[in-house]
């Protein structure tokens, strides 16, 4: 299995763990992740306004290059995944947008959303299979009560993201089970942590992160895992005094596969 691997900026700076353990685990699972040399930042935030064209272009460049390499793109960061999937959807389903972007980029072959964008978790579930991962687990995380924090970017809008059931997702819980730990289901796992305003509005960010943290704790979690560097930062920085530890899902995977 070979995929184009899109790490994104944050994984090169503040979220090196997320990247490192994703690579190590992939190797252990027999997956080759090829990082293109010339990737650009995806833009970090999906431009919701329909008349924002320029801010979509860098994501399109990544998608085009994957298409030209005839590979699916694997992402890890929730924000990158969100941006790439939604821009790809625009290119596939919004003729006006597709026309404008293609005219601007003057590509040799027009791009129409052909690239498959998959999240690392989806790759684990659909391409490798959690049963298979379970077999490869060397150090099962037995007895650990782990809360999956999905956040917003992976799940919504579910019609476009098509990642999991937006209200009752199961993918990270199934992942936790595959690693031998016990998933903790808590109501705020798919509610916003406030990461979007973490720079500009600390009090709102604290309030939202506090609710997520409290909900996970009330339900008996010892640890929260996430796929999003911003959620990670925000839950950690604004999760309150007696917050739970927050870690990347890839780190736990590497730990269970004993490649950490």
């Amino acid at each position: 299995m070979i995929y184009t691997y899109y790490p994104g900026c944050t994984l090169k700076t503040k979220a090196k763990d997320l990247d490192l353990y994703a690579r190590k685990s992939a190797t252990a699972l027999g997956v080759t992740l090829e990082e293109p040399e010339d990737w650009q930042c995806c833009g970090a935030v999906y431009p919701l306004a329909r008349d924002e064209i320029a801010t979509r272009l860098s994501a399109v460049r990544t998608l085009v290059s994957a298409r030209d390499n005839k590979r699916a793109v694997v992402t890890v960061c929730s924000a990158c995944h969100h941006v790439l999937v939604r821009v790809n959807d625009d290119m596939k389903n919004d003729a006006d947008m597709r026309g404008k972007v293609n005219r601007y980029l003057e590509l040799e072959n027009e791009y129409g959303g052909e690239t498959e964008v998959i999240h690392y978790l989806t790759m684990l579930r659909d391409k490798i299979g959690f049963d298979e991962i379970k077999k490869k687990v060397v150090k099962p995380l037995e007895g650990k009560k782990i809360a999956a924090y999905y956040g917003c970017m992976l799940l919504r809008p579910s019609k476009i993201m098509a990642f999991d059931d937006a209200e009752n997702p199961t993918i990270i819980e199934d992942f936790i089970k595959a690693l031998g730990a016990e998933p903790v289901i808590y109501p705020f796992r798919n509610e916003c942590c406030g990461g979007y305003v973490t720079m500009s509005d600390k009090s709102l960010a604290k309030k939202a992160a506090g609710k997520v943290m409290a909900s996970a704790k009330d339900n008996g979690a010892e640890l929260i895992i996430t796929a999003c560097p911003l959620c990670m930062y925000n839950l950690d920085a604004n999760g309150g005094a007696d917050k739970l530890p927050v870690r990347y899902f890839t780190e736990l995977l590497a730990e269970a596969l004993d490649v950490k």
Partner: peptide, 19 residues
């Protein structure tokens, strides 16, 4: 003035785009 050590890159990039 809004930065701290741990703030991820994406927050800075998106701040430029959002605000």
């Amino acid at each position: 003035g809004l930065l701290d050590d741990k703030l991820p890159q994406q927050a800075i990039v998106s701040a430029f785009r959002k605000y």
